[in-house]
Amino acid sequence: MTLHKPYLIVAFVLLVTEILIALFVKDTFIRPIGGDFLVIILLYTTVRGFTSFKLYETLIGVLLFSYVLETLQYFNIVEMLGLEKINIARVVIGTYFAWEDILAYTAGALFVLIVETRFNPKLSK
């Protein structure tokens, strides 16, 4: 396995940022929308940091994973799994479906696509 340190560094910074947002930000934009935007970038950089997957396959996989998880929230997956009393599960998995989350995930993926193709075009090949 080859580690890609630049991606892992970005992933670590984003993970710390996400934790700080979850612990200290209690607003109606940064935590729900900004957090979902950043989580796509976090997942993408984590996968790219630990694998040899290319830009498009990683981005599509991360985006589909996020869409599926959001859809499972619509069906109350946390309760179905019996995890409703476990706060970390409620935060990580989520407890309700929101179209705004889908838009934030999509915006995060578009951001990754723009950054990767604009600043390092060889990655998209």
Rank of each mutant, 00 (worst) to 15 (best):
V13Y: 03
T106G: 04
Y7P: 10
A22N: 14
R31Q: 12
S124R: 07
T2A: 11
P32Q: 05
A98V: 04
G34T: 09
I9M: 14
V115F: 13
T17L: 11
G35W: 01
V13W: 03
E116H: 03
F24Q: 04
S124A: 13
V112W: 04
K122V: 11
K26E: 07
L113T: 12
L14I: 14
G34R: 01
T51R: 04
G61A: 09
A109S: 06
V115E: 00
L23N: 04
F37L: 07
P32S: 12
F37I: 06
D101W: 09
T17G: 03
Y56T: 07
V112N: 01
V68A: 15
Y74S: 01
G61N: 11
Q73R: 09
A109G: 13
T17Q: 01
I30G: 03
L8H: 07
V39M: 04
V115A: 05
I21Y: 00
T95L: 09
I19L: 13
K54D: 12
K85E: 12
L103H: 09
L64H: 00
L123K: 15
G94L: 06
I102P: 01
L103I: 15
L59Y: 02
D36P: 07
Q73C: 11
T28N: 11
W99G: 09
V92W: 13
Y44I: 13
E57I: 08
E84V: 06
Y44T: 15
L3Y: 15
R90S: 06
T95W: 15
L64A: 08
L15N: 04
V16R: 02
G49E: 08
I33D: 02
G35H: 00
A109I: 10
V16C: 15
P121S: 12
L42M: 12
T106N: 09
P32Y: 02
T28M: 04
H4A: 13
I41M: 15
W99Q: 07
G35R: 00
T58C: 08
Q73F: 13
L72W: 08
Y7T: 12
L72H: 08
V115P: 11
R90A: 14
K5T: 06
T46I: 08
D101I: 05
G49L: 07
A109K: 15
I41K: 00
F111A: 10
S66F: 03
F12D: 06
K5Y: 13
E79D: 06
I88G: 02
E84P: 05
A11N: 07
L14E: 00
A107R: 05
L55F: 12
V47E: 04
